[in-house]
Design a protein around this nucleic acid. Sequence first.
DNA 1: CCCATAAGAAACGCAACGTATCTTAAAGGT
DNA 2: ACCTTTAAGATACGTTGCGTTTCTTATGGG
Lengths: 196, 196
Amino acid sequence: MTEPKTRRRGAELEQAILDAAWDELNEVGYAALTIESVAARAATSKPVIYRRWPGRAELVLAAWGRNRPPVTYATDTGGLRSDLISLFSRIARRAEGMVSEAIAGVMGEAFRHPEVADLLRDRLRTAPLANWVQEIVDRAADRGELTQVAVPKRAARAPLDLVRNETMMYGGPVSDETIAELVDDVYLPLLRGLGS
Amino acid sequence: MTEPKTRRRGAELEQAILDAAWDELNEVGYAALTIESVAARAATSKPVIYRRWPGRAELVLAAWGRNRPPVTYATDTGGLRSDLISLFSRIARRAEGMVSEAIAGVMGEAFRHPEVADLLRDRLRTAPLANWVQEIVDRAADRGELTQVAVPKRAARAPLDLVRNETMMYGGPVSDETIAELVDDVYLPLLRGLGS
DNA sequence: CCCATAAGAAACGCAACGTATCTTAAAGGT
DNA sequence: ACCTTTAAGATACGTTGCGTTTCTTATGGG
C-alpha cells in the first residue's frame, strides 16, 4: 500500500494530480476540495502538490485549464436572430462546463491574491468573441437585416458578461428561455440601436 | 475581564454582534473573518453566535443587511445620457459599498447551501430598478430623445447586471470611463434599438 | 554504475471548526 | 421581594485541514 512499486515523476505525476483535482472538483465541489483529498486521490503526498502550486486556487485553475472545452466557432445559421441564439447558447454551455461553484470559490480567494485574480480573468475571457460578434453583424448586414456597423468592444463583450452574470447568480444551467430573452430583449435591440 | 458587570441580551446583544461582524468584514475581509474573531470582538462567545446564525455566510448577510446604504431615487438631470450616467453611477456606488470580496465569499458558500443562495439573490436585487429605467425612458420620450417604448424586464435589469459583472470581475470601484462605455456603447444603443 | 534530484511518508504546531457542559446574570410574573 | 425561567458567557472538547519540516529512498541522466 505504501507505494506499489512505481514512483511517478515530472509530467506524468503532474497530470495525475491534475486529474485527481478535476475529479475531486466535480465530485465534491470546490468548497470541499482539500489539498489532502487531492493528494490522497492521486496517491501521492501533500508536499508534492505544494512544490508545484502555492494553494488550492492555483491547483484548481491548473486542473480546469487542462479540462475545459475547446472554443468553437460561430457558424452561419442563416439569420441574425438564430446566429445570436447559437452564440449565446455556445457561451452558456461553455460557462456551465466551468463549474460555476468553482469559479465562485476561486473568486473568493482572488480578492486576497491578485495573481489569482489575473489568472481567473484570463480564464474567463473568450478572446475571439469580439470577432465572432462582428462576423455575425457583418453577415446580417449583407442580408440587409442590419445596417453595417463596427461593434464597440464593450458591446461585443456583453454576451459573455450577461451570460456570466446569469450563471453566477442562478447557479444552474442557463435556460433556453433566458437565452431567448437576452437575445430578443437585450442584444438584438442593442445591435439595431448601434446602427442608428 | 470575565464580564465587566453587565450582561447584554436579546436585540442589544444581537446588534453588538452584527456591528462586530460588520467591522471585522471591513477590516480583514470575508475570507479572514471567523466566528471566533467576531465573538471576541463583540466580547461574547461562540455559542451565542451559533445560537442565532447557522454559519458565517448567514451572519455576514445579516450584518450586511443592517449596514447597506439606502436605495436612492433617480432624479431628472435634464437629458437621457446624463440620466443614465447618473443611474449607472448610483448602481456602481451601491455595489462598491457591498464589499464585493464578501459577496464573492458568500457566493462560494451559496452553492452548497441553497437557502444562502436565495438570501444572497434577494440582497443583490434592486427591486425598483425597472421603474427607474422606465421613468428615465419616459422622460426621454417626452423630450423627443427616444420614441416611447415599454422596456422589457430583461433590458431593465441590464444596468444592474452589467455593473455587477464589472464589480465581480475587476474587484475595485467601477471607473467613470467604464460607466461611460456601458452607457454609450451598450445601454444607449439598446434603448434606441428598442424603439425601432 | 553512480549521483543529483525529486517522490513520498510521517509528523509537526497552528487555527478554526462546531458542540457540549456548566455556571450565573437578567427579566418577569406573582 | 422572591423565585423561576431564560439565555449569556466561559471553557474545553475532538476534529479537520493547513502549510512546513525532516528524512528516506526510488528513479533517470550522465
